[in-house]
Design a protein around this nucleic acid. Structure first.
Lengths: 155, 155
DNA sequence: TGATAATGGTTTCATTTGAAACTATGTTGA
DNA sequence: TCAACATAGTTTCAAATGAAACCATTATCA
């Protein structure tokens, strides 16, 4: 903890720039904003659509409800993303045996092409983003984020 | 790096749940969402309004443009937050010597009372959020976020 | 000077978002 | 078996948001 922040705390002040929720928000918005912009420019794809494609690339055949479980998105977001991805021919639906409410979702051939283009971009982006950290720091970051995410869920 | 993620990378797949920008986004949204909810319930205050109050508590007399610089908010957000904070009597404006476009912003007495109530709540929230980390881990987290924030700005 | 550009801040308008209501289908239990 | 409830997914409507245009004022400099 920086000494000025300690002092501020004693005085009943709060330094926004040292307040963890604020810092996380600024960092996350910066990162997501840049990614969103590049996906939008290159593929006319929102972050929500990309997330749906990402889980379908990894888990073909999930239903929308299952996508919801795996992405921290709500069902309205997923529904909208799915409907746009159908329009743009990037995913397709197939009947679920024994339940006419749900449909399995799959990347189409076009969807697979887009996916195959985005994945290396995304990984490269992440690599550059963390290029200032050595292996130990990355492992540490991973651990810390796990702990914080667990803590946040219980607050 | 987890071995399954390494394997996925080799196979041209991407595990959303190990993708750093995604993890940051989920974490930040969870944290900010919970804070937003509690500020809204107790004080009818949005995160944007709280940020403006937070910097004015620390730096009384900033103009809206200066608030913008210090908060990673844009000027429209600040303008809207300021206008609501005026309505709710939490801040007031005074003329800027020699520039009739800008006005200095200050917490009112009411604003100070709200501020004095929120600060300990916010700090307590942060404390609980990081209660799973020891001092060394907190220092490490701080360093890592500094590095990542700097890296994100240059991407 | 006076024209042009820059700055501080607000407003407008179209788009995005979220919550709640809704349709259709499926499950449960008296 | 049928009434009540639960689930999958979509739609609606109001509110939040962002980009651009805007107004007023101040700075620049030919």
């Amino acid at each position: 903890m920086r000494s000025e922040a300690v002092k501020a705390r004693r005085d009943g002040l709060l330094f926004l720039e040292h307040f963890l929720p604020y810092r996380l928000s600024v960092l996350s918005n910066t990162v997501s904003g840049r990614i969103a912009k590049s996906y939008e420019e290159r593929f006319q794809l929102t972050i929500a659509e990309w997330r749906v494609m990402a889980v379908l690339g990894r888990f073909p055949g999930l239903t929308a409800a299952e996508v919801t479980e795996r992405t921290a998105m709500d069902k309205v977001q997923v529904s909208r993303a799915v409907s746009r991805l159908k329009e743009t021919q990037r995913i397709e639906q197939r009947a679920v045996e024994g339940d006419r409410r749900a449909r399995h979702l799959f990347l189409t051939d076009i969807g697979h092409e887009v996916y195959a283009e985005i994945v290396p971009l995304a990984l490269d982006y992440e690599r550059r983003f963390t290029s200032g950290l050595n292996a130990a720091e990355r492992a540490q970051l991973d651990r810390l984020l796990d702990k914080l995410t667990a803590a946040a869920a219980t607050l």
